[in-house]
Design a protein around this nucleic acid. Structure first.
Lengths: 206, 206
DNA sequence: ACTGCGCTGTTACCTCCGGTAACATGGCGG
DNA sequence: CCGCCATGTTACCGGAGGTAACAGCGCAGT
């Protein structure tokens, strides 16, 4: 995105090394470890990327493109609305399932930057949220509240799928298709539509 | 929760100091800074709390109780379902609004612990998620999929409100009541029910 | 052929952090 | 008077991110 790969080959090699280390050790890999994997020492890394945030930023930018493109394309698939939503959910879950370590990096980077933090959504996820917002705005008629609702919902849906996806990856409580159904059902208001259950008595042991 | 306050007064004093520092400097405050605020030096902190995670853990436990109790009570309010949900949302947003730094600590702690991380939901939020799960299970008839759906939805709703709440707190795009409406509308399937918008043509500039 | 420049690389160091070891002090019940 | 226990200290360790200073190498330009 920022520069063509062919123009900065050394940078690409270093990013490849960093990628390998992060796959192996997680996003908290040290700069020393990355430098060692690349067969060099720290100062070179800093020359190329400025600081740690620059490195992991460049690393995430690489992978963000793919996920973002997949989600965007899913959002514009010519399907019935419910099928489209299910498709988007499935694409996201399939992505985090196929390469968990990569997407852990995108979804849960080490904050590091104390300025303006306190945000649940990492940059890659913010981009996804914006994509959802845009899609909602373009495809659905929400009246005059459209802008506020679509902005809110973009972030909300992203946070929802993020939390659900993390939990699903960790505990694998069900196959992917069922998870997609559960999330789509929630968005389709099944929580609101389902019948009441009789209130629990104080002693249900009888 | 773990110990009565009166039994360990020193510990409470230290936690008070830590609290002050975290309010002032955010969750990444150093142990030295906390010790200095308490008028002592590091080793005493480590004697009382073991390590940094112990300290911030004790600190979060303190505040978690209040938020959790508020949410739980809201979940059991005898209202119509929509009103109850709105009430829960409002309680949560009011809480993070009233003391943002405190709830930033609960919702976005410094990970620190590399084992088993990669989870979007901090401990306090996991407890909220469980509370929602329990409420859904007790109050709503979801058929035989109940357990899976309620577990999924508990996490999902928590993640959704977390992301939306963070964004709302940061940018304040609307008053709280409107935010509550936007979120409740999403849960009530308005995304599914709203009318289609005509597909954008390739050149809408004409 | 020499010079300058830009890129690659190194060693050695700084500061700050979480965490620990070793030692000193003071109150208090037996 | 004696332990004992909690309180407190200074001084240190290893490792993190980050930087300064220096060294080689290839390759233009004159």
């Amino acid at each position: 995105m920022t520069t063509e790969p062919r123009l900065e080959p050394r940078r690409e090699q270093l990013l490849n090394a960093a990628d390998r280390v992060v796959q192996r050790e997680g996003p908290s890999a040290s700069m020393n470890a990355i430098a060692a994997e690349a067969g060099i020492t720290k100062p070179i890394l800093y020359r190329h990327f400025g600081d740690r945030n620059g490195l992991i930023g460049a690393l995430t930018e690489r992978h963000t493109a793919g996920l973002l493109a997949a989600v965007r394309s899913a959002l514009n698939e010519p399907l019935e609305r419910r099928d489209r939503v299910e498709h988007v959910l499935d694409v996201y879950l399939a992505a985090i399932e196929s390469r968990p370590q990569v997407y852990r990096l995108l979804t849960h980077p080490e904050p590091g930057d104390p300025t303006g933090a306190g945000n649940a959504l990492a940059p890659a996820l913010r981009q996804i949220a914006e994509e959802i917002t845009r899609a909602v705005q373009q495809q659905i008629d929400l009246g005059q509240d459209g802008p506020l609702l679509s902005e809110t919902w973009g972030r909300s849906i992203t946070g929802m799928v993020l939390a659900a996806g993390d939990w699903w990856l960790e505990t694998r409580p069900c196959p992917r298709a069922r998870m997609v159904q559960a999330l789509a059902d929630l968005l389709w208001g099944r929580l609101a539509a389902a019948a009441d259950l009789p209130p629990m008595l104080t002693a249900p042991e009888a």
